[in-house]
């Protein structure tokens, strides 16, 4: 599918989604509450078949968190970037996609470790890099550490 076709298809699924097309890939912005049905659909739908999640990360937008999913279909060779916004910055939570793409299990653990975003229903949500008793989440913009050296 081309980006245009993809866009119309996605709009039929989630009418409230917004798109950005300026970048290399088509980007879709949704709220984190709608993430799970959309992702399931993207993976299972015959027309989209996004069977490969090649990147999962998070961006601290200060007023919100943005979980970014880079999806690719091996069959159709189209790429979609899903950006889900989590507005609750006190206790950021979102549904896990680790049962859809198993690679998400490790990537979500990384995001949890470094951003503190909790993934609901994740099978093994523990810190992956840092120690279990580490205070704070280093990749947040407001993270500070007395030992940190300003470059």
């Amino acid at each position: 599918m081309t980006n245009e076709e993809l866009k119309t298809h996605l709009l039929s699924l989630i009418p409230q989604a917004t798109f950005v097309e300026t970048g290399e890939f088509l980007e879709i912005f949704i709220h984190s509450e709608n993430i799970l049905p959309l992702m399931k659909n993207l993976k299972d739908d015959e027309k989209t078949q996004f069977d490969y999640l090649f990147c999962l990360t998070c961006i601290d937008r200060i007023s919100s968190f943005e979980v970014v999913y880079h999806l690719l279909s091996k069959n159709y060779k189209h790429i979609l970037v899903v950006k889900s916004t989590i507005s609750n910055i006190e206790n950021p939570q979102t549904e896990t996609v680790s049962h859809i793409w198993k690679t998400a299990e490790f990537h979500e653990r990384e995001v949890y470790d470094l951003f503190g975003v909790k993934f609901i229903n994740h099978p093994d949500l523990r810190r992956i890099f840092l120690e279990d008793d580490w205070k704070g989440f280093p990749l947040r913009k407001n993270y500070s550490d007395p030992n940190m050296i300003e470059l």
């Binding site: 970048g23 290399e24 890939f25 090649f54 990147c55 961006i59 970014v68 880079h70 970037v81």
Partner: peptide
Amino acid sequence: GDFYQRVETPRGELGVYIV
């Protein structure tokens, strides 16, 4: 904006995602 670059390292796909 966002910029994503994929390359093939000897061990697989390396993605660099710049925001």
